[in-house]
Write a protein that binds this DNA or RNA. Structure first.
Lengths: 151, 151
DNA sequence: TATTGTTATACTCTATAACTATA
DNA sequence: TATAGTTATAGAGTATAACAATA
């Protein structure tokens, strides 16, 4: 059975990410952000802003939900909406100055917090992990596209 | 800077799992289950049942939330509660017959659905990925324990 | 007609903490 | 006192679909 071949790696992926999430999310909440809010702030960091469409694609948040997430960040003064000059249908979102400050307070410290676990893996094996993850992601994205456009 | 060393692998882990989730969750919802509900059904499958405590540990769902998730599954007749004979404080949860049927309809098909992406990776590299993920998970779990009990 | 983002609805999940009943 | 699970509360995210404005 070819199926049994993939079970261990699927299980390990799920368990590993679960462990990652447990560590990461607990730290994110200490910053006073929810995981989706953190995702948006970090995605907007070091960019001139982007449309809802692009922000949604990058964060995996669908448009209806994204409106709410951006609303809550905007209510706290961390992001702002701008009309898109090129396309009247489109709205750009970008960090405000306060949002940039939040990004600065949050991004590096979060990486520093996560780093020890990743640094405990020897460099060669870390590179190996990175390469395999990329390989798997590309395979998953192909499948995703196949589902979306089944000719 | 040691920090920059870990950024790529963290990013790749996040992006890979994001791709996995996009594919997996879409399929799970076709079964009429939410991801946490699927998690519970799959965790209970092929077991004689377990306590809320154990179920919560395995699924990463905290106790207050788990009560609600189990309530909704119980309302659909998929799981049932039993008094624990050994400990009067504890409640066991297990799949009903309908729940077992749901498990059967859901578990294998879901694996079969995911399999192609994983099978596209050569066996040796798949084993490599599995080993590296285990290594990372163990490191993350150590960190998690350190946080929980900082002496 | 198609696309971008918003709105509306209804539900699920989540964190948090107080509560009960057992141990 | 500690633990297992429930209840209560409030908020956040989610799917889904209808909608307005623009392309």
């Amino acid at each position: 059975m070819s199926r049994t071949v993939v079970v261990p790696v699927i299980r390990e992926l799920a368990r590993c990410y679960q462990a990652f999430q447990r560590v990461s999310d607990a730290n994110i909440r200490r910053f006073g952000l929810t995981p989706p809010q953190f995702d948006v702030v970090v995605t907007l960091g070091n960019t001139p802003g982007m449309s809802f469409k692009e922000l949604g694609n990058r964060t995996l948040i669908t448009k209806g939900t994204l409106t709410g997430v951006v609303d809550r960040l905007a209510a706290r003064g961390l992001v702002e909406r701008l009309a898109c000059p090129d396309d009247g249908r489109s709205t750009l979102v970008r960090l405000t100055e306060a949002g940039e400050r939040m990004f600065g307070q949050v991004f590096e410290p979060h990486l520093a917090y996560l780093a020890p676990a990743f640094e405990s893996i020897p460099a060669g094996e870390r590179k190996e992990l990175e390469a395999r993850l990329r390989q798997l992601r590309e395979a998953l994205e192909r499948q995703c596209n196949d589902d979306a456009s089944p000719d």
